[in-house]
Simulated assay, not measured.
Amino acid sequence: MGVTKQKWRQQPPPKKKMSRKAKVNQLKWYRLKAKKKMKSPNPEVRIRYKLEKAKRKEEWLIEKLRKYEVPRTPEPVHDPEILTEEEKFYLKRTGEKKKNYVPVGRRGVFGGVVLNMHLHWKKHETVKVVCKPCRPGQVYEYAEELTRLSKGTVIDIKPNNTIMFYRGKNYVQPKVMSPPETLSKQKALEKYRYLQSLEHTSQFIEKLEKELEDYKKHVALFKNHNKGVAIEKISNEDTTVDDPATTSDSK
C-alpha cells in the first residue's frame, strides 16, 4: 500500500489545458515576433528567420514523405526471358507500329500503371510506356521499377522517354494485376506534391544560405575598408603634425 502511494506521489501533475483565449494570445505573440523579424532593419536577421522557417518546413516534408514509403515484400526471383537480336528487332518493329501505350505522368509508377500494362498485354505482345514529364535519367528508374512489378522485359528505351515492354512468351495474366506494394492514384499524387514542395524548399534553402554567406562577406569587406580608411586618416594627421617643413612655412 505504501509503495503504491509513493508511486502515485512521484507522478508529475497533469498539464493544465490552455483556454482558447490563451491559445489565441500565444499565436498572436508568435506572429508578432515573426513580423518583427521580417521587418527587421538588419538583413541578417531577416535571412536567418527565412532560413529557419524553410528548414522547419523541409523537416516536416521529409516526415510526411515517410508515410508514403511502401515496404517491399520478399518476391520470388524473376528470371527474364533471353531474346535474340532478331526477336528484339521484330518486336521493336511490331511495337512501333501499334498505337497502344500507357502514360506515366507526374504521379510516377503506381498500381494503376502496372494494371494498364497487364490489360494491354491481354491483346498485345508489347506495350509502350510514355514517361512525361521525366527528369534526365529518370526513365531508367521507371524501367527498372516496372520490370520488377510487371515481370515484363524491356526491349528498348527511346530518347523521347518511351519504354517498350514485352510480356513474355509464356505470359499468364495474374489474378491481382495491381501489385499490393504500390501506391494508389490519390496517394501517388500526394507524394508527388510533397516531393515537389521538398525540391523547391531545398533550392530555397540553398539560395538563402548563399545570400547569408554573401552578406557576411560584404560586411567583412566593409569593415576592412573602414579600418583602412581610419588608419590612413590617422597616418596623414601624424605626418602633418610631425613634418618640420610645414611648421617653418607657417612661421
Rank of each mutant, 00 (worst) to 15 (best):
R148M: 10
R148D: 05
R148E: 07
K151H: 05
T153C: 12
T153N: 14
I155D: 04
D156S: 11
I157R: 07
I157G: 07
K158E: 14
K158A: 11
P159H: 06
P159A: 02
N160W: 03
N160R: 04
N160Q: 07
N161H: 09
N161F: 07
N161Q: 08
I163V: 12
I163G: 15
I163A: 10
M164N: 06
M164L: 11
F165I: 08
F165C: 12
F165T: 07
F165N: 08
Y166C: 03
R167M: 04
G168R: 00
G168V: 01
N170Y: 15
V172I: 12
V172A: 08
P174G: 01
P174N: 03
K175L: 11
K175V: 15
K175I: 10
K175W: 08
V176G: 04
S178C: 09
S178P: 03
P179F: 00
P179V: 01
P179M: 02
P179K: 01
P180H: 05
T182S: 06
T182N: 05
L183S: 02
S184W: 02
K185Y: 05
Q186I: 07
K187G: 01
L189M: 13
L189N: 12
E190W: 10
K191W: 00
Y194E: 14
Y194D: 10
L195K: 06
L195D: 01
Q196M: 01
S197N: 10
E199S: 08
E199Y: 06
E199D: 10
H200W: 15
H200T: 09
H200V: 15
H200N: 11
T201F: 04
Q203P: 09
F204Q: 11
F204T: 09
I205N: 00
E206C: 08
E206H: 07
K207E: 14
K207W: 12
K207A: 11
L208T: 10
E211P: 02
E211R: 03
L212S: 05
E213K: 10
D214W: 02
Y215G: 00
Y215W: 07
K216W: 02
K217Y: 08
K217C: 05
K217P: 01
H218W: 10
H218R: 15
V219G: 01
L221R: 15
F222L: 13
N224Y: 10
N224P: 05
H225L: 14
N226W: 05
K227T: 03
V229C: 07
V229D: 15
A230K: 12
I231H: 14
I234H: 06
I234M: 11
S235D: 14
